[in-house]
Design a binder for these strands. Structure first.
Lengths: 132, 132
DNA sequence: TTCCTTGCAAATCGTTTGCATAATG
DNA sequence: CATTATGCAAACGATTTGCAAGGAA
């Protein structure tokens, strides 16, 4: 199924590329809407799904019950602050090695890896220190 | 909040401990129901959430839109077959090192790690080979 | 008697889908 | 013209929740 151009999709994609955090569908919707007020949430979902299926963006499930979307499709992992909910990138050099190791000890074919760390981010730690 | 005993919770916990796969709430429900027909799905959800919050079991979000539950709370990772949907354990020696490395390069406090591999499991690979 | 837990059903909420219409190639 | 994309609203499905009644400490 060939993909035809649409302004909506272009805006969604562009928006995602400008962000280093990992917005949810609704955040994408709210933002794109400012430039294209008629866009519907359904269209946002449809395009995010489409782009993710084609591998142009990445769908993340970090465990807060909402899907997040990442314009960076390179192999990297994430950190989720259980306090403020922010999702940030976390670069680790050993990911490739890990992938190789996993593949070696496993009798299926591994295609993708997803690693997520959870804890409290620096900013939230500061907040709490001040408070107590 | 102190926790009082309930037969339902006990059955849910026991069931989870007998399983090496990672059942969903509904699978837990269907199974526990055979021994305790009156139990409700809501109770299953409530207890799974309660046990997970207390760290006695683990809630897994592997990206299929449904929560899975794991009686094994030790640090280990998972493999999800994108063909049959099965979720299996995958032991990796480097997880502790990875945790330490992540902690070192990150200015917050890391508490938990979750790694999931995706691909096609051995059995599904065989199936496809036979077919083609 | 206190208060945690249950079953039931309704509510919630993120996401998907059907449909008639609009836009692309 | 054929096909893909859209907006809208309704449908969906997993999970949560309010409530009155039951059970544990």
């Amino acid at each position: 199924m060939a993909m035809k151009y649409s302004r909506q999709r272009q805006l969604i994609y562009n928006f995602l590329m400008t962000r280093k955090d990992h917005p949810t569908a609704d955040v994408v919707y709210q933002n794109v809407r400012q430039e294209f007020p008629n866009i519907s949430l359904g269209t946002v979902y449809r395009n995010l799904t489409l782009l993710a299926d084609r591998g142009e963006i990445q769908r993340l499930q970090v465990g807060d019950g909402v899907d997040h979307f990442d314009g960076d499709t390179s192999r990297h992992c994430h950190f989720v602050c259980t306090d403020c909910g922010n999702v940030t990138d976390l670069q680790m050099d050993c990911l490739d090695d890990m992938f190789t190791m996993a593949q070696r000890s496993f009798d299926g074919r591994i295609e993708k890896q997803m690693t997520c760390f959870y804890g409290v981010c620096g900013e939230c730690l500061d907040k709490h220190t001040v408070k107590s």
